[in-house]
């Protein structure tokens, strides 16, 4: 079998290097090579958003990124959202608004919502729903997720 590729990247602020096959997605690399299993696989074709990560300031579905493309990239995953032992306001808002049931989609929703609030600190309900349309949740019906994002926006603005 041909050689693996050496990839150097930054994940959650830390330098991370890993070996991967070019056919491995970034999602596979995060989960199987690096051990960051907080990023989830729901469909492996970009339609559920459970594998959402932030690369260089843009959210993407990591199942549709090759691991080798991560060379030199700055990646944020769910494991990097909390500040040490302090949860991010979005994480607190998701918990206090009961915005998760099974929780499998939650990492993707938090990464997506965080990117939204960073570029639009006070989004309307429609803007939240539009931005999050690439993140599927089958448990909640989205009501409490939308409210959690609204609540987090308020918390962040007050902070």
């Amino acid at each position: 079998m041909p050689a693996k590729t050496y990839v150097q990247t930054t994940i959650n602020g830390e330098h991370v290097d890993f070996l991967c096959e070019p056919r491995q997605s970034l999602l596979e690399c995060l989960r199987d090579e690096i051990g960051l299993t907080g990023t989830k696989e729901g469909c492996n074709d970009g339609n559920c958003g459970a594998c959402t990560v932030n690369i260089d300031g843009r959210i993407v579905t990591s199942c549709l990124v090759l691991g080798v493309e991560a060379e030199g990239a700055d990646i944020e995953t769910i494991e990097g959202v909390a500040d040490g032992s302090n949860l991010h306001p979005l994480q607190l808002a998701f918990l206090e608004n009961a915005a998760l049931q099974c929780g499998i989609c939650t990492p993707g929703f938090i990464i997506s919502s965080k990117a939204l609030l960073e570029q639009n600190p006070n989004p309307s309900e429609h803007e939240i729903r539009f931005w999050l349309a690439n993140n599927l949740c089958r448990c909640t019906g989205y009501d409490k997720i939308v409210r959690a994002v609204q609540d987090a926006a308020k918390r962040l603005q007050e902070a």
Partner: peptide, 14 residues
């Protein structure tokens, strides 16, 4: 809750 909003919770595939 904290495990599930930080990605620490271990699901089957993890």
């Amino acid at each position: 809750g904290a495990d599930k909003v930080t990605g620490r919770a271990i699901y089957g595939a993890d």
